[in-house]
Amino acid sequence: ARLPRSAVLKKILDSVKDLVKETNWDCNEEGMSMQALDTGRIVLVEVMLREAAFESYACEVPMTLGIDMEPFGKVLRCAGGDEKVTIKASRNDQDHIELVFENEEKERMSAFELKLMDIDGEHMAVPDAEWGAEISMPSSEFKKIVMDLAEIGSDLTIAVSKLGVTFTAQGNNCKGSMVLQPSTAVDKKSEQVAISFTEPLEMTFAAPYMKMITKAAALSSTVTLSLDEACPICVRYEMEDNAGHIKYYLAPKED
């Protein structure tokens, strides 16, 4: 599997490493994907890198690659963001993978081996949901709201109504809320805020977890929040050119 830029892998690693220390990557002809729960079982993260994300991609037999994020991160730090990455996994020797980084002019090539782990992964079945509310907005804006409000309090409440979407945090000494309304005047789709809902709803989530989830803003200019009463929120980042996505399901806080 050859990616045109290592930056994609670096960003994916940054987006999951606070939550997941080791995970199985499932490789098949469609691409590479992973699903993992954090140790606290509060967030389920799913990553899909489709064949379209790669400059070249071949997977003759489905394989599971058990990857330890820490050494993987050390290896990836050796790659320049604009260097190509080739990942090679051999079906005859499933003890390790090889990673080769090449810069555009091929003046430099570096090769690494990463030992694979035998991870007892558990796959969760995510039911198809009829969401009560969906909000799409610029991922940078979502990130700023979450980062700011997480400083105010550890509970982040998201309320959707005809007023728009309201993010509220309450701490011991202060309370803050931010309201976003659907944008009509913005031309660029990636800068728009779109809100749809069937019934007004209000749900509370742990702000520190939501903060970790905003790391994926580096992967996509927009984010979609899907909410339903008494269900985990789905925070979805779609990468450009049908390259794939990262989705987080965060369980709510409830009385």
Partner: peptide, 14 residues
Amino acid sequence: GKPQQSITSFFKKK
């Protein structure tokens, strides 16, 4: 704050 729910209360193992 409110108590934190777990993902496993909503999604089951495959």
